[in-house]
């Protein structure tokens, strides 16, 4: 297949895209000795906000030592992921300003933007808390730790899938 056509495809198979993600995750360890973790970047942003507002007591180990408010490579990673997805969607023409998710969402929850915002906020709040407790998210633990054969990754995936399946059953029922 010609290469231009490949980059312009709207969808890659999960096998092809998975190889690309695996290359990114492993080269991150090989070249920078860091896991390709996304959730850490959000924690750094939270730390910057908390510290600049002057809300952090000296006794708070997290915002002072674990995640000090310093610009680090995890923030660069966020910018990179954004740019990569922007490029991918521009090449394929899939870029579009979307205010609500696709049909599956509308069928279940309707077209209220407020409802979407409230539910998305709640989900992301839970993910930030869960990632903090687990020590990473889908990329840093699910892919990277598992790839390094750390039990942390396998345990995390088990927790995510067990709970995700139960949660979605509660939302959508058995259909």
């Amino acid at each position: 297949m010609n290469i231009t056509k490949f980059f312009k495809m709207k969808r890659w198979s999960p096998w092809t895209a998975g190889i690309a993600a695996g290359v990114a995750a492993s080269l991150s360890i090989v070249l920078t000795e860091k896991t390709l973790g996304v959730s850490g970047g959000f924690e750094t942003i939270a730390s910057m906000i908390a510290n600049s507002a002057g809300f952090v007591p000296p006794s708070n180990a997290f915002f002072n030592r674990v995640k000090p408010p310093v610009f680090d490579s995890q923030l660069i990673l966020l910018v990179g992921i954004f740019a990569g997805a922007l490029l991918a969607s521009l090449f394929s023409g899939d870029f579009k300003v979307r205010t609500l998710p696709d049909n599956e969402w509308k069928k279940r929850f309707g077209v209220s933007k407020f409802k979407r915002a409230a539910i998305l906020f709640t989900g992301c709040f839970l993910m930030a808390t869960g990632a903090g407790i687990a020590g990473g998210c889908t990329s840093g633990l699910g892919i990277s730790a598992t790839m390094l054969l750390s039990p942390a990754g396998f345990l995390f995936i088990a927790g995510v899938f067990a709970s995700g399946i139960i949660t979605i059953l509660l939302i959508y029922g058995r259909k």
């Binding site: 869960g130 990632a131 998210c137 889908t138 088990a158």
Partner: peptide
């Protein structure tokens, strides 16, 4: 890892995204 993963999984099912796919 397990409990954090479980809280994370619930959030992921509710939101339909995760940190990396949110940025993407």
């Amino acid at each position: 890892n397990l409990l954090g993963g479980a809280i994370f999984g619930a959030g992921m099912a509710i939101a339909g995204t995760c940190p990396g796919t949110l940025i993407a």
